[in-house]
Amino acid sequence: MNSLAARRRHPAAIALLLLLGLLVTGAVYSALAPQRVQAAAAADAGQDAAQGKKLFQANCATCHGLNATGTEDGPSLVGVGAASVDFQMGTGRMPMAAPGVQAPRSDKIKFSNEQIAQIGAYVATLGPGPSVPDSKYTDGTSGDAGRGGEIFRVNCAMCHNAAGAGGALTRGKYAPTLQGVKGKHIYEAMETGPQSMPVFNDSNLDPQAKADVITYLKSMEREGNPGGYKLGGLGPVPEGLFAWTIGLAVMVGAAVWLGQKGA
């Protein structure tokens, strides 16, 4: 004991004490923090919806109204279902950063999966609507790619492009690219028909048909671009542009170089 007291003024003492304090704090936090998460996860659906309502009123009510019945700035959400919420918020479209012709997809997802699920649970209480799909339809391997491709070309390609690269609609609206979109979100989009998109409900395209479409899109992604850099994948326009810019520049560059060479 005496020897320890004698070393209390050792230069390392303060650093050791700080380290000890941090260790203890960290250990206590790690012991407590998971419990809080478990508590939230264990909450029942009623609590989820109540929590979702709070989140909704704080973040969404400005446009969609305090009771989600819509205002001049945003549509009513009665009956849109949890699938709609999961699609709109899970792809970063909602909440919208700025008014525009169309909510753009964004990589900045503003809410956690848990919060999105809570808001979804709240919106689902407003009226019956589609719920978040089962992952067995959305993992991109459970369908028939060939059949999915046929369904895709007949129903989707006229707006989203045959390769899913996206296309223009009227007045600045557009069908976004489907490359790099999660299978779950593609399914939800078909089911809920967000923005300008028509609804493909289960009597129109059954869940297996939707799974086929997702499988087709995902298998195209898996195949990659066997021909090299895809130049945006938008067909003859970027190809023509490339020929006129880079292609022509290299050809002319070679001609200038050769033209400067004397005999």
Partner: peptide, 23 residues
Amino acid sequence: LFQINAIWAYGPYDPSPVTAGSQ
């Protein structure tokens, strides 16, 4: 190095579908 006319991405011709970005 540069992919051109990725016909496999367009799928076979069928009179009913049309693809966006047809040029």
